[in-house]
Simulated scan of single mutants.
Amino acid sequence: MTAPASRVAVVVGNPKPQSRTLEAATYVATELAGHEPDLVVDLAQLGARLLDWQDEMVTEVVAEVGSADLVVVASPTYKGTYTGLLKLFLDRFASGPDGGLRGVAVPLMLGAGPGHALAPELTLRPVLTEIGGTVVSPGLYVVDSAHDDPSAYAAWLERSAPTITALLGSRTGVSA
């Protein structure tokens, strides 16, 4: 009997559907897990539903993301931080044993230039930790013009993937 593969989710807070941010997050998740994400949440497609705290579909998506073993949470950089769209979604997670993220979380942000390279560490990492995510690697910042260039991710993946995959393996019984 083989152990189940890790459940991988991608959450993208770009207000533009099917964005470069989505491509980047999917790439990172696939590289880390060795398979395509099981769940991809493009928040632009949820739109105003995120404002309705009674919306059952959003509640289900939050539960699925919360139970994933690995979650790549991505946003373009807006005014030095992540988007309000992503904030609306992350506000749905309660910290503590009955809610929140339960897996490894990877903060990823794209931006126009290197001036906001610390944004994932300073803005996204703390909230992912606060809502229960285990953030074991530095946040990843990619200049958006290089979002489709594997070399833009190579150094971060070389440094971070061993720790992330080892932790995933210890949590799921699956070695990468």
Rank of each mutant, 00 (worst) to 15 (best):
V62I: 14
V142A: 09
E121Q: 14
Y153F: 11
T83G: 03
G80H: 01
Y82A: 02
G34P: 03
S67T: 12
E23P: 08
S95P: 08
H116F: 15
E31N: 04
R92V: 06
S75K: 04
L128K: 07
A29Q: 11
E60F: 05
S151E: 08
G132S: 10
R125W: 11
A112S: 12
R159N: 01
L86R: 00
L128M: 05
G84W: 07
A161L: 09
E56T: 14
P162R: 03
T81L: 00
V136A: 08
G103V: 07
G115N: 14
G80K: 02
D149I: 02
T129S: 11
A166H: 01
A68F: 07
A3V: 13
G173Y: 12
A25C: 13
L32D: 02
D42I: 12
L46I: 13
R20L: 15
L108A: 10
L118C: 09
D38T: 03
T59M: 11
T163Q: 09
L51V: 03
V65T: 07
L46E: 14
E130A: 15
V12C: 07
D38Y: 01
T134H: 13
H35R: 12
L90A: 01
L108M: 09
V28D: 10
V65Y: 08
V65L: 11
V58N: 03
P15V: 10
S75A: 04
G132Y: 13
V12F: 02
V12S: 06
G47D: 10
T2N: 09
A161Q: 04
W156H: 01
P138N: 02
R159E: 00
V127F: 09
V143S: 08
A3Y: 06
Y141S: 01
P15M: 11
L108R: 08
L122Y: 15
G100E: 06
G100V: 08
